[in-house]
Design a protein around this nucleic acid. Structure first.
Lengths: 186, 186
DNA sequence: GAACTAACGCAAGTATTTTTGCGTTAACCT
DNA sequence: AGGTTAACGCAAAAATACTTGCGTTAGTTC
């Protein structure tokens, strides 16, 4: 007989109460971020809403920033799949539309602010980039790379929202997609 | 004999000591932002560096956010003129290059973060938009508007920096300009 | 199911941030 | 020049944020 997961970190307890507390805290953070669109969630507020003692939160996350970033990263892990409509144009438009929609919800803006505030967390976005590249690779005959999608679609949508203009409206999104495709045709 | 500026707010004193304190505080904020690239400048630190008493700072600005935003807005007022190279392509490239350069300095990043954190301050960017439009109006035969410059140049540059990738390198900047012009030709 | 101990809750303590009351300085007006 | 008072500096108090010590709870292992 031998210890299960013998090489794993000794004495770590991710199950049961710990996981429950983690979920309760995350839920509270997301709710608070959605209500007051601020990136500075007060630990005391999170504790009150989640029912988890403030001391526990301080011990596990140290600072509000670390907590917010942890929540943001967890949100990225369970993201929805990339669109696959059969055409590059359709994929790009669906992608842009979904980004614009998700960023319009108040918690979407809070999430974006969190990522920006913790900038340097480049790793956080690496997986996303690979998925975009895979989408592009399905379509033949163009020179687009994931950076082009970033510059041509993500950047305009995100920055408009960050600057307090709303997200682009559907006609503008379509126009951005057309320009991106045209750039890839040359 | 009558009061000078009789219609102005009674009892406001912008001159002398008040202005001197304001300048000292602004200078301290800018320095601190440049050193530690954080958007949360501590009032106590600003007071220590500027020589202005903390109480005075609290009374005039209430919160660190308000102070940072005030500094950012003041910085925008004394901005450099738009480039005028003789060609649209030259103007756009010079503009993009200057933006990329200014945002690479640590205080430029701090400034950008401040604006983003205070999003909703759309007014702050209105004047800039008009200047961009004026630059476009000098060149004949294209359909570009200031929004196109925002989406095609500003957004990629700013968002790359905000996300922790560096600013685009010169070849990429040139490519973005070419795509923007191509989009305006159609 | 009993031993072991990571994670927790709680109360008290420490540190940091912000406010308040009051006397002083100096900008502005006549 | 002299009066008026906005803005200031200072010390003390209040509020807020964070840490620490300790006993308890409940995953985990055997």
């Amino acid at each position: 007989m031998q210890k299960p997961k013998a090489r794993e970190a000794r004495g770590v307890r991710p199950g049961g109460r710990t996981a429950r507390n983690r979920d309760a805290v995350f839920r509270a953070v997301r709710e608070l971020m959605a209500e007051q669109a601020t990136q500075q969630v007060a630990i005391a507020d999170v504790a009150a809403r989640s029912g988890v003692h403030p001391t526990t939160i301080y011990r596990r996350w140290k600072t509000p920033e670390a907590l917010a970033l942890d929540v943001a990263m967890a949100g990225l892990s369970q993201r929805s799949p990339m669109p696959d409509t059969g055409t590059l144009r359709g994929d790009l438009l669906a992608f842009a539309t979904r980004i614009a929609a998700s960023i319009s919800r108040p918690d979407g803006l809070a999430f974006l602010r969190t990522v920006v505030a913790a900038s340097g967390e480049v790793e956080l976005l690496r997986g996303r980039r690979d998925e975009i590249q895979a989408m592009l690779d399905r379509a033949p005959k163009h020179h687009l790379r994931s950076d082009d999608v970033f510059d041509g679609l993500l950047a305009p949508i995100y920055l408009r929202v960050l600057f307090g203009f709303g997200p682009p409206k559907p006609p503008r999104l379509a126009q951005l997609v057309e320009r991106l495709i045209a750039a890839g045709d040359r």
